[in-house]
Simulated assay, not measured.
Amino acid sequence: MQQQRTIRAATAALAGATTFAGALVGTIALSLARQVVTLPSKAREPVRVVEIRPDRDGDGARGTVVLERTVESHALGEFTMLWGQGTGRARLLERLETTDRTVTRRYGDVLGADFAVVRSVRLASAPQLGVEDLGLPWSKVAIPGEGGELPGWFIPAAGESSDWCIHIHGRGATLTEPLRTVPLVAERGWHSLVMRYRNDPGAPAGHHGKTGLGLTEWRDVDAALEWVKSRGARRVVLVGWSMGGAIAVQAALRSVHADLVVGLMLESPALDWNETLIWQAGQLNVPASIAKLGIRLLGSPLARSVLGAEEPLDLAELDVVARAGELRWPTLVLASTGDTVVPVSGSQRLAKARPDLVTYEEFTRARHTRLWNTDPDRWEAAVGKWFDRLGEAGRS
């Protein structure tokens, strides 16, 4: 009898443990799915400022800053520091000294909120603090979208042209992110529209402020295509950075104005969200099985009621590699094996699947969207050469 009671108690305990484990797995999966579709209300400023040393002969606009050593603060190249939720910004320049815990760098061109009292910053990949830094004519524009006006910058090429580029930044990135491409295309006769899309600061909010990973945002690019068409565009290149790459491809595949599209330029693109989300979960030591459960939630009817998404997210629609046969545009893909946000394998597989269309440039040391920062000469040569070929094709 005692043995039977022991067995029953053990069975009950095991059932309870199994139920608890199942609930824990479900909770983690739900949390992951919510993080995927939920944009932060405030931008994180994760890099700690250890010390600020303004130049003695200056006004505080330049000097030396000691930052906590992180992957980003230690990276090669020039960047933008932002603080106070973007109310302050400055250029982060060359490295001077590194230790196990800190990185000392030059900074310059402080704008906005007081830098002297800053305790933490975030780093944006663009070296430009704003569109003004390009030294090119520009104007603010508003694109009529389905949810309201989408702000943007228009940077014209010199002279008359019917060639346009629409530049699409990545998830949570600044509007300056795509500016590295603009001077290269402007000198080749391409007008530029650098656009915001739903849920960006100053842009209309999407459904409950949730991202669609490209499955909803592409409609804003569709509106931008209509806008440039009304201004004489006959040929358009969609330039997408990170998640902006996914948006660009969806717009090319779905837009009623897709006949305008003559090329895609994709920088550090998210081409396979299944792979990317499982890989990102692995960086957090979350097992792939739990990540896959979270992905199933994204695509289920619960996406609306539980996650607040505008629609279930069919990640198969976003798998550009699986849909490679549907592509019909010359495509430049720039990616890095050093990317810690989006695995490079998606770019590699797309290049292998469509060598007839894809020009692939692979970097090694560069972090996510920081290819230009690591090797600007090579990056600009690759982009310029590709646009030269596209220009020649348009003239033939």
Rank of each mutant, 00 (worst) to 15 (best):
Q3W: 15
T6Q: 15
A9G: 15
A13F: 14
A17W: 15
F20C: 12
A23L: 13
G26N: 07
L32C: 12
Q35V: 11
V37Q: 05
T38S: 08
K42G: 11
V49Y: 06
V50P: 00
E51H: 13
P54H: 02
R56W: 09
G58Q: 13
V66H: 05
V66Q: 03
E72R: 05
E72I: 06
L76T: 11
W83A: 00
W83L: 03
G86V: 00
R95V: 14
L96I: 09
E97K: 14
T98I: 12
T102S: 12
T102Y: 06
R105E: 06
D109A: 15
A113F: 05
A116R: 13
R119A: 11
A124R: 12
A124L: 04
Q128W: 02
G130Y: 02
V131R: 01
V131L: 06
L136W: 00
E146I: 10
E149M: 11
P151W: 03
A157V: 00
A158P: 08
I166C: 07
G172K: 05
A173Q: 12
A173Y: 08
T174F: 10
L179K: 00
R180D: 09
V185W: 01
W190P: 00
T211Q: 07
T211V: 13
G214A: 02
L225W: 06
W227D: 08
V228M: 03
R234S: 14
V237M: 02
V239M: 05
G240I: 01
M243L: 12
M243V: 04
G244T: 04
A252P: 04
R254T: 05
D259F: 07
V261T: 12
G263Y: 08
L266G: 11
S268L: 05
A270E: 08
T276M: 11
I278A: 14
Q280W: 10
A281M: 09
G282L: 13
Q283P: 04
V286I: 14
I290P: 02
A291P: 01
I295L: 07
L307C: 07
G308Y: 04
E310C: 11
E311S: 14
P312K: 11
A316T: 15
L318M: 09
D319M: 13
A324I: 10
W329D: 06
T331N: 06
V333S: 10
A335D: 14
S336Y: 07
S336N: 04
T340N: 11
V341K: 13
V358E: 02
E361S: 12
A366R: 04
R367I: 11
R367M: 12
R370A: 14
L371S: 11
D375I: 04
R378I: 04
R378D: 01
E380W: 00
G384C: 04
R389G: 15
L390Y: 13
